[in-house]
Design a protein around this nucleic acid. Structure first.
Lengths: 306, 306
DNA sequence: GTGAAAGCGCTAACAG
DNA sequence: CTGTTAGCGCTTTCAC
């Protein structure tokens, strides 16, 4: 059983591989006799021809491959993974609709290896939660001209296209927080990107004693137990669920960064964001790809709270 | 700025591409003068050479690409996505360690399109939660000899390598369930694979009125409200969290299929499984790839409960 | 309308 | 020890 290639179809149809390629790709301004056309289409179907995208990539100089590179601080705790499950799914769905395939790859935030971008000749890349120190250093290794969109990473460089939540608008939903800051505490998700953490802290009218950065359940518990009757602002649903083990959930206001509000206890307060980050990311990246020749309109997009 | 290819390195070093290839790949039984070797290595580093895997794939007839194809019944509810977030992460991690790259792709369970396998010449494929009717029909389209591992799908055909939880061993952890079945109800995760659902039901000493297949939160609520003081067996942590909104969580026993036990309320009973499904899947698939020439030892692996 | 041929970047015999 | 060469499967220019 021979491999089904263009050449094989060409042979069986008695035409050249060029003609077969024209037909199968509906090449514009190549006029093909209707007879040959249907004959080729016919045998292609019979043989179950499927194009080899590696070969195509080689000549077209684009692969149709997008990388989703997620920085992981640690792989150990599985509950942390819900942070991006919705994001991943949305991105995959949106890219699929546009004919792209997704390569999912995780990075060591402390020492990201980005070879995959060049090796696989990725058409575009979405980087999630990158440390800006590492990122700067490494970004020079980027193959020239590969569009990159950075998510959840505050990078102080207009060179990078960024996408993140508008946390200020989320906190603005909580007027009481600003009137009575002493009644609150906050738990931040432990982003690798320290600038983002600092940014979050700066938006909250709280002292550093009132702010905890998530590390592990035990530390969270200790922190919450010290907060007495205060109300909690929790970033990320999974963390909120853990927090719910140590305080009454009606005391909690959850900033829903994982699109998982439904899993929260009914009596917790939830603040969600207006748009799906994943879909937005995918669309944005595709735009970048399509006009990567032009000066990239390096904007930072922020998604507002509902 | 020229593209950095083997040819370019060859030119700059004054040797042939073959020699460069030998050096860069440490080809065994090719003895290279230490002087040339280091010169090549040197300029390769300077130029920041990265091999083009598409080109390599073409000649080596393997791509280093693994497909993770997940059947989705619906994309609408984001909380469902936690079902596989741990699995995806484990698989990606394990494959990465072995030098493979992961293509994540979702399938429409009712009409799965598997072209990606042939197009991308995937070296192996993991299919998750497939309807066996669709799967049989479609599996004939599989490129010959591509190793496939099927997860969470009961397929009555020894031809397929399968991996799933040993639910019987999970239920066996609950002796009371079998002594007092009238005191229980169960909520099953809504797998696309109907055989799996039937299998689960057959393992439970419950009537069909006592068993609910998850559809949406509202239906779940109605079902639970009818159960009075009964205790619930819930498959999947996310569903358990939803169920927890409508019944006391100490009444719940959760079969943890998503590796997210930590997110459950402390007073719920959790039953977990011994091994990480994702890691096991990746390792199993790699084995299949490495000896795909031999008669595939088509076994079904079941992961026992702790 | 169709085909010959060059080449994308790389590997692997086979010569030398 | 190193180079020549023939592809891998496909696209595309240019001729016929």
């Amino acid at each position: 059983m021979k491999k089904v290639t263009l050449k094989e179809i060409a042979k069986q149809t008695g035409v050249s591989t060029a003609t077969v390629s024209y037909v199968l790709n509906n090449v514009a301004n190549q006029t093909i006799a209707e007879e040959t056309r249907s004959r080729i289409l016919q045998t292609a179907k019979e043989l179950g021809y499927v194009p080899n995208l590696a070969a195509r990539s080689l000549v077209k100089q684009k692969t149709g491959l997008i990388g989703l590179l997620i920085n992981q601080s640690t792989r150990s705790e599985s509950w942390r993974k819900i942070r991006y499950s919705s994001l991943i799914d949305e991105i995959e769905a949106a890219l699929s609709e546009r004919g792209y395939h997704l390569i999912l790859h995780s990075l060591d935030a402390a020492a990201p290896k980005l070879d995959i971008i060049a090796e696989r000749k990725l058409d575009g890349v979405i980087v999630v939660d990158a440390r800006s120190d590492r990122f700067h250093h490494i970004s020079s290794h980027f193959p020239r001209g590969v569009p990159v969109l950075v998510i959840d990473s505050l990078i102080n460089d207009p060179l990078f296209n960024q996408l993140m939540f508008d946390y200020a608008s989320a906190f603005a939903q909580l007027p009481e927080l600003f009137h009575q800051p002493q009644n609150y505490y906050a738990v931040l998700d432990d982003y690798n990107n320290e600038e983002l953490l600092r940014h979050l802290a700066s938006l909250l009218p709280l002292t550093s004693e009132q702010i905890h950065i998530m590390q592990c359940e035990e530390k969270l518990k200790q922190f919450i137990n010290k907060q007495k009757a205060r109300k909690g602002i929790i970033i990320n649903e999974a963390i909120a669920l853990l927090a719910g083990k140590y305080t009454a959930s009606e005391q909690l206001t959850v900033i829903c960064t994982a699109n998982m509000a439904q899993l929260l206890p009914a009596n917790a307060t939830a603040v969600a964001f207006k748009q799906q980050k994943g879909r937005l990311a995918a669309e944005q990246l595709i735009q970048l790809i399509n006009r990567s020749e032009l000066a990239a309109s390096n904007k930072t997009i922020k998604i507002e709270a509902e």
